[in-house]
């Protein structure tokens, strides 16, 4: 098939950005704060919801808004549409070192479940839903695996994986056990479950959580070697060491006022 030569192009090695080419009238949806540049003729618009057909009704919009509020996401999405007469480009940049993964939703059955921080951009019409893992165990112990983003449609979507990307297709029944933070995305046919690591000792002294995710095929999974949370932890830890104990701690919860402060202050 020799149709459009270039619809998108990914630049860079460890700090990538993706350039998306829009035909006149075409549009892309981007997560807030990831746009890098756009050519003349591209208009930016902030809309309520995600601009997909699934959220067209008032109720659908409200439901979507409620979910987004609940999960701490922005109520609005930004749409970039080409108002010019020729092809125009807009670029979205990865927020931290890693790889940008282009996913053609039409080739994977129309639905992709991804971690909510990893979504970068998509063709307009792709619905950006919030999907809770409907397993309370995941909610309680899975941490990052609980609130996912569900991309529906048949266009391109771009997600971001921290560090190095592992793209793996699981055969029927094939199982992979991963740290929940390392799961970037998976097809809905993949079973996602939370498993107890089994050994308290491992949990206490191994440094990782008590629980990990089990992914069972068939279906494709995308894993990242560097979850943002892991990097953030290290940075916070390092900054504490540099500061030398973190400075003055606040007074204890219980020891606030006593006789001393009574005599010292005057209402």
């Amino acid at each position: 098939m020799a149709m459009d030569v270039v619809d998108y192009e990914i630049f860079g090695n460890e700090m990538q950005y993706v350039e998306v080419e829009l035909d006149p009238g075409e549009a892309a949806v981007g997560e807030a704060g990831v746009m890098m540049y756009m050519q003349d003729g591209i208009q930016m618009d902030t809309i309520f919801g995600d601009g997909s057909a699934q959220q067209s009704g008032l109720f659908g919009k409200l439901l979507g808004a409620g979910k987004r509020l609940l999960t701490g996401e922005s109520l609005f999405t930004t749409i970039y549409h080409n108002e010019g007469s020729g092809k125009r480009r807009v670029a979205f940049a990865a927020p931290y070192p890693g790889k940008i993964v282009p996913v053609d939703l039409s080739t994977i059955g129309g639905t992709l479940i991804c971690q909510k921080d990893s979504f970068l951009a998509a063709a307009k019409g792709v619905s950006l839903g919030i999907a809770f893992q409907k397993k309370i165990g995941v909610g309680l112990f899975g941490g990052e695996g609980f609130i996912m983003q569900k991309l529906d449609g048949d266009g391109m979507a771009f997600i971001h994986a921290g560090g190095t990307l592992l793209e793996k297709t699981l055969a029927p029944g094939e199982t992979l056990r991963v740290d929940t933070g390392c799961v970037v995305a998976f097809q809905p046919s993949v079973d996602f479950d939370i498993q107890y690591a089994g050994k308290i000792k491992t949990a206490l002294f191994g440094g990782e959580g008590l629980f990990f995710a089990t992914l069972t095929g068939p279906g494709k999974v995308w894993l990242q070697s560097l979850p943002l949370s892991r990097m953030a932890d290290r940075i916070v830890m390092a900054s504490r060491v540099v500061q030398g104990g973190g400075g003055k701690e606040s007074t204890s919860l219980l020891g606030g006022i006593g006789l001393g402060s009574l005599l010292g202050d005057d209402d």
Binding site: A131, Q133, P188, S189, V190, G219
Partner: peptide, 21 residues
């Protein structure tokens, strides 16, 4: 699958199990 949103239809065959999603 994710939130039981998929169906697995299977049947036994000569070399093992066939699967439809």
């Amino acid at each position: 699958g994710f939130n039981h949103s998929q169906w697995a239809i299977a049947w036994p065959g000569e070399g093992g199990e066939h699967l439809l999603i």
